[in-house]
Design a protein around this nucleic acid. Structure first.
Lengths: 207, 207, 207, 207
DNA sequence: TATGAATGAGAATTCATTCAT
DNA sequence: GATGAATGAATTCTCATTCAT
């Protein structure tokens, strides 16, 4: 039997579980759910297939575990948006944090993107629940800033979409970004940060 | 073998080919290459599986045909960016055309996105070739506008990335957009257009 | 309906039938019954697959037709063995005729060989009937020669097997013969003829 | 993946592998590569089809394994031809060993024959390499005997072909041999041995 | 006669999962 | 915990044959 609910996992259990999740993230994000095979994940994780299934009951379960871990972190940057902060600086900070997320966790970003692109069958309720709630909350903050004339009048939720899109693009469409930039891609996150700062800060500066 | 290279396809060929491509686009864009099965495509197209394979020699070939047809159109909006036009209006127009593309061809957008996200194994050369060439050309135009003080100074290629990202988001992340907007999603393209116009036009307005 | 029994085939019918048989012989002899496809035969014969099946009702039927035509000729060399001739010369002549057969009709030889090797499912009755009868007849002749001291005492039927084997080898095992002889294979039938003459004539010369 | 390269196979692996090879030899030799199905092989070997493919990665791989094992043994009789032996006895011995090979390993013989007959696509290099080398070597020995007047002057390589052909005939054309001999086929190898001894020994005796 | 179109019955292979040890 | 072995259910693709015109 796999580890019972109450047991605290041993070190070895934690390590293997982590190795599996890591391998699975690599493969799911690169090939999609159906494109990744348990064989490949097991090999990448350095275990036998049955052993892998000792730690997770099914392929589906691994995928679910990855998405859950992901969603935990995914909203952190937005959560940190401080209603009491200076509006343009807050937004600039949020953009930057999100861009760093794309830079540091591209596989998670692609995993999430593929899931959403396929209609979010597994995380639809999270999107409509906690995610929507957080967006609503922060959108209200932004709307407040706009009403107060601190930033330009924009639809705050679409503003958030744009920030998501523009930053995650560097993770999700990495192959395209590299192809287009050619040799210049080394400094791409730096250049992106400057460009996005201009767009969002100047674009939102009240006039 | 089905139609020889030189023959012009008969009506029935055109119809069935189109039905297959349509069904395949639906399924590939929703489930990815591996998630979509020939069975499902054949059923959606209203043909038997062997009959489907009478028109296309393999699953791979269908996918390739879709990508090729897609790439043909994909760059049209950018191509229309007029070096002789009024800079901010040109950019606003481009954003709008791209947004309409996302609205009218979301499946194509998702197909493209999944391909790129998986490393662009099949269209890598197009990205590094024709796509890069077009971007370089238009980036030079935009850079010229910036030097002339017609728009703010931004990295033109990253600007293009942002436009791509922000517009395609409404196709690729449709499930998320709907979940977050809830009942308000009906007018999402209209609201998005206004928001993006503000961001890109005001964000780029020289000061 | 295909041509009724009584009709004499038109020229075009004869030509197409022949083209089909020729293409089928090529492919069956090279790939075996299962390895050859109707597609390939039709293409080699220059017709469409349905048209091919207008002339022959099935793949099986083509194969059968080939074997029948083949068996007709196959025994000719042995039939010509003349009981009244000079024994050693008769045998030498038979060997030579059989070798020429291998040289001039290698595909037929291979078709026959493959059929026999697979247990002769389609021509078993011919082997046990007409073929056995002819061999028995000629074996009696040879046995008579041996009894009369005109040739050495050998089992006449095994002698016939050896002649078959040694000559057909140049058709059936052509690939091996060429590989072993390398550049010298051009004159292989000439060299084979001399070698076989020595073996069979000297080997059978009474002493 | 099944057994890694370095591991020594377990008992069960050896047994199942052997059962598969045995069943495959039976079917490939009787039906040809395309005529034999994995289904049939699996059933004959007493395994499920996927289990069979656990031991060999593909149908092709099974076939290749059979041919490789075969080639190993195939040349043994010729290798034993002793340059220092008494020429006629050596040749008689070789003929006999080869005939025993046909008697004891008819399926291997037919497998080899079918492969060569189809143009030796998989073993062409072995024929042109090791096989040719061995034949060249032994042909030189035989040529030496002929020059020394120990045997009649014949082309040694064609002599070898004749020996191959005449002996393998009893394996490859078994169906025909049985049909022709009828009830007498029981002693066929004995009778063949006598006949071939006469042909090759007397045929080669110097005069 | 001829052929474009269609299909049912396989055939090889893959893969998530289970079994036995 | 770990793994070699096994398998049922697909999944892609092939092929002889038939249909409709």
């Amino acid at each position: 039997m796999s580890r019972a609910a109450g047991d605290s996992p041993t070190r070895i259990q934690r390590e293997k579980t982590q190795a599996i999740l890591d391998a699975a993230l690599e493969l799911f994000s690169a090939q999609g759910f159906h494109g990744a095979t348990l064989d490949a994940i097991a090999e990448a994780a350095g275990l036998s297939k049955p052993n892998l299934l000792y730690y997770f009951p099914s392929k589906e379960a691994i995928h679910r575990a990855l998405l859950e871990a992901l969603l935990d972190r995914w909203l952190d940057p937005l959560r940190q948006l401080d209603p009491a902060g200076e509006p343009l600086a807050e937004i600039a900070g949020y953009v930057l944090r999100k861009l760093e997320m794309a830079r540091d966790h591209p596989r998670e970003s692609r995993l999430f993107a593929q899931e959403v692109m396929q209609g979010a069958p597994r995380i639809g309720d999270v999107l409509a629940g906690p995610l929507k709630a957080l967006v609503d909350e922060k959108a209200a903050v932004i709307a407040g800033w706009a009403r107060a004339g601190k930033i330009a009048k924009v639809d705050p939720r679409h503003l958030i979409f744009s920030i998501w899109a523009a930053t995650q693009h560097y993770a999700d469409f990495d192959a395209q970004v590299r192809a287009v930039l050619g040799a210049d891609h080394e400094g791409r996150f730096h250049d992106a940060a400057r460009t996005l700062r201009t767009l969002f800060v100047e674009g939102l500066r009240p006039r």
